[in-house]
Simulated assay, not measured.
Amino acid sequence: MPQAASRDLARAVWPAVPPKPLVLVPVGSTEQHGPHLPFDTDSVIARAVAVEAANTLSGPCLVAPPVLYGASGEHAHFPGTVSIGHEALRSVLVELTRSLSLWAGSVVFVNGHGGNVASLATAVPQMREEGHDVAWTGCHVPGGDAHAGRTETSLMLHLAPQDVRLDAAVAGDTRPIASLMPDLVAHGVRAVSPSGVLGDPTGASAEEGRGLMDVMVSRTVRHITAGVADGRGHLMEPSERKVAR
């Protein structure tokens, strides 16, 4: 009996891989997310967005296994964090693109961790210059807090409630990420927030997480469908075409 087609590359078999598919590659991290969320939070969210987007997009589309290690140096002072740094991550993204391009029609990295942006913004343009059809997009919602606050806690209550320890949740530094960035770059997260939380998980819910997921998936699908990228290879809203650089 022939194998059924699967959008999950890890569980598919090679004869079921369609010709020149779009391949979505979730890019996450293994880093602390406060005392209440697991280390794989970014990877879980990125993969969920990629899977739901793949199920929405028309045409052949596969979701590759996630990249579980990212550039998380700002979290290095918390035990359990594993970071491979920007240069290693850039190399991984480059080699993944070259390998996937041997059989894929196009590649989109779905990024779940802000610390990975510098690597994506150098690797993807390099690959585009080599002639590969590759771009990237991020998992974020307008107005979301920075790290392990209400936004990510709600998403994880929706996606993996068994891994959320709400009884241990605490509020951290609630300043906007733009205000926090100089201290984060200079001293790391722990110097700003001993708990590792940048935001406030209070009020998080699975229902809110479902709504946030819908927003992220819709944005991802629009970005991929429009195919408009800036100079960093970052996919944008179609209305942003005029300001692309």
Rank of each mutant, 00 (worst) to 15 (best):
W103M: 12
Q126E: 15
M127H: 00
H77D: 15
L93D: 02
H77N: 14
S119A: 15
V82S: 03
A76C: 05
S101V: 07
L93V: 08
S99Y: 08
R98Q: 12
E95T: 13
A121T: 05
E87I: 08
A88L: 14
V94H: 06
Q126K: 12
L120C: 08
V110W: 00
S101R: 12
A123M: 06
G70Y: 07
V82D: 00
A118Q: 10
S99F: 06
H75Y: 14
S119R: 06
F78S: 11
A118P: 03
A121K: 06
G70S: 13
A76G: 10
S83T: 15
S91L: 13
G115K: 03
L102D: 10
A88I: 13
G80T: 07
G115C: 11
S119P: 04
F109D: 00
S72Y: 04
V94W: 01
H75C: 09
H75R: 07
S101E: 06
A71C: 14
F78N: 08
L96R: 02
V107T: 15
F109A: 03
V110K: 01
A104P: 00
M127F: 01
R98L: 12
F109I: 04
T97Y: 07
A71L: 11
H113G: 04
I84V: 15
V82G: 00
T97H: 06
A121C: 07
L100H: 07
A88T: 15
V107L: 10
E95K: 13
G80V: 05
N111D: 15
I84Y: 02
Y69Q: 09
A88Q: 10
V92K: 05
H75P: 00
A118M: 09
G114Y: 07
L89E: 02
F78L: 12
R90M: 06
Q126W: 09
E74T: 05
E95G: 07
L93I: 09
A121W: 02
E87S: 11
M127T: 01
E87L: 13
L89V: 05
M127S: 03
T97M: 09
L68M: 12
G114W: 05
R90V: 00
L102I: 05
G112M: 09
S106W: 02
T81M: 07
L102W: 08
N116T: 11
A88C: 11
A123S: 07
G80I: 04
G105C: 04
P79I: 04
R98N: 06
A76R: 14
F78R: 09
P125R: 11
G70K: 10
G112R: 05
A88N: 10
V108Y: 02
H77R: 15
G112N: 08
A118L: 11
A104R: 01
T97A: 11
A121V: 03
A76D: 13
T122A: 14
S83W: 08
Q126F: 12
G112K: 06
V94T: 14
E95L: 13
M127A: 06
V117N: 11
L89F: 05
L93Q: 04
G112S: 10
S91N: 13
M127I: 01
G115F: 01
A121R: 11
R98A: 08
V82P: 00
P79Q: 10
F78I: 09
G70Q: 09
P125G: 10
A123P: 01
I84Q: 04
P125E: 08
L102A: 15
E74S: 11
S99Q: 13
